[in-house]
Amino acid sequence: MSEREIALSVRGVEKSFGRQRVLRGVDLDIYKGESLVIIGPSGCGKSVLLRHLIGLHEPDAGSVHVNGVDIAHMNRSSLYEVRKKFGMLFQNSALFDSMTVGENVAIGLKEHFNLSRAELHKTALVQLDLVGLADAVHKRPSELSGGMRKRVALARTIAMDPEIILYDEPTTGLDPITADVINNLIRSLQKRFHATSITVTHDMVSAYKIADRIAMLHKGQIIYEGSVHEVQTTDNPYVKQFIHGTAEGPVTAA
């Protein structure tokens, strides 16, 4: 494992909002091509950590290296260049409701490449086909169900062939069947594009399905890292309590 190339390296990241200390020195390495799932109770700072990886938050202390370059204190135009390598799926899909589904999927390509309308439309259709929604290309996001919106957002996320994909609670708010569809999509995209993917979730079904490796964030620090099998058989009381979902234990609800 240690021979593998590191895609993202987080060192000593701290972040506070007002008086609330959310991240208290996070150290984490993410290897190229792996699927890492970060688990942890609600409000432990998982999403905040994820947002640091793409520069949507600037850490108060520490560094975030992407392919060896520190993005934590980078100027804006270089940061935009780095972000072009990323795709991010947001918790509530975050589709642009002033645009059609097709325009949503193609917006990154439209802004960053000189493509004709026909080419953009064609690319949008290809991406939407991957998530099984090619016939929704002219619809508005408001006409779609939550699961469909998530799939469109997924198509948008992968439209620019990202090297690194971030998923913020991809299955939250979906029924178990739709959640499984999303899990399968994430897994198949992973296999197909060999992208490094980092998922934040508290859905253990989803975590087991999409993870190569699982890390647990608790009270602003990574307290455990291991393979799916290691997580399932660990003696770590925090992890044990979390994956079995019991109220009694060292982890207290937020």
Binding site: R51, I54, L56, F90, N92, A94, I107, G108, E111
Partner: peptide, 21 residues
């Protein structure tokens, strides 16, 4: 509304400058 529904973050994540856009 775009801010609270993370649409502005989504723009930024797509490497689109939300101020310019």
């Amino acid at each position: 509304t775009m801010k609270v529904t993370e649409q502005i973050d989504a723009l930024e994540a797509l490497a689109i400058d939300s101020i310019r856009y």
